[in-house]
Simulated scan of single mutants.
Amino acid sequence: MDAGGGVRRRAREDDGSLLARVAQGDTTALNEIYARYGGPLFSFLFRLSGDRGTAEEILQDTLLAVWRSAGSFQKRSSVSTWLFGVARRQAHNRLRGVPPPVAAEPYDDLDPMPGPEELAVSGDRVQAALVRLPLPQREVVVLAFLNDLSHQEIAEVLGIPVGTVKSRLHHARATLRGCLDERMA
């Protein structure tokens, strides 16, 4: 548009600058954050809650929390890791002490081409087994296999040591294996 980049610069704006604009009250920047991360955050929240409606509500709570706390982002992690941390806190606030409901179908239009991990975990048997995991194990599985976060990134999102991430993944795999073996018998 203009010689300085104008609209084109904003179209390619990095996440940190976008979050700084959110902190200044720019709703367009919040919409861009939603456009970039709404799908992955919804998927994460759906897998934690097991219910589409609950996941939608938590996503709304997450965006409100991002709006209110964007100025507290200190660049100690990536924006995406920080966003998953905000979403996780909102999910814990909502789900604390509430058993997960029976799994529903996630949005069909969020990601038109789901990856192999999403296809593998989206099956009814696997989803039913996933919602039976304790929340700490479920969130590690979802972050690792559906959101493709590294052990270090998961540790940052959850505020736990990397060793704890590995331990939770190990126990979650064993539990999932047992649930799936039980259902196949």
Rank of each mutant, 00 (worst) to 15 (best):
H92N: 06
R9H: 08
E57G: 10
W82K: 08
V131P: 02
T28P: 03
V66E: 12
R89Q: 11
L48I: 01
S43Q: 11
P100F: 00
T27P: 13
S72P: 07
E32C: 13
A55P: 05
G50E: 00
S49V: 01
P114F: 04
N147R: 05
D15K: 08
G159S: 14
F84A: 07
T54G: 01
S72G: 05
A3N: 09
S167P: 02
R183H: 06
A11D: 09
G39D: 15
G39M: 10
R173F: 00
D108N: 03
S78C: 05
G178F: 02
H171N: 09
A185T: 10
L41E: 07
A3D: 14
R173P: 01
R168G: 04
E118T: 06
H151W: 08
R76W: 00
A29G: 10
V165R: 07
A29F: 12
V86W: 05
D2M: 10
V131T: 05
I58W: 06
A155I: 06
T28A: 13
K166C: 15
P106S: 04
A3T: 10
L176T: 02
T175K: 00
L143E: 02
T164Y: 03
F46A: 08
L48D: 03
E57T: 07
T28L: 12
A129Q: 01
L133M: 12
R125I: 03
R125A: 13
V121H: 11
Y37D: 12
A23G: 15
V142F: 02
D108L: 06
V162A: 07
L146P: 03
G115P: 01
L19H: 10
L59V: 15
E139Y: 02
R10Y: 11
G53T: 09
R36H: 10
L41S: 09
Y34P: 04
L83G: 08
D181G: 01
S150E: 08
V142T: 14
A129G: 12
L64G: 13
A23M: 13
V126K: 00
L149H: 08
S72K: 14
A11P: 07
S17G: 11
V165G: 15
T28Y: 10
V22Y: 14
L130T: 03
I33T: 09
Y37C: 07
V141L: 03
L45Y: 10
R183Y: 02
S78M: 05
M184K: 13
R88H: 15
N31T: 14
G50T: 00
S17C: 05
H92G: 06
A20D: 15
E105D: 12
V142K: 02
R88C: 07
E32T: 14
P134V: 05
T62K: 10
R96I: 10
G25H: 06
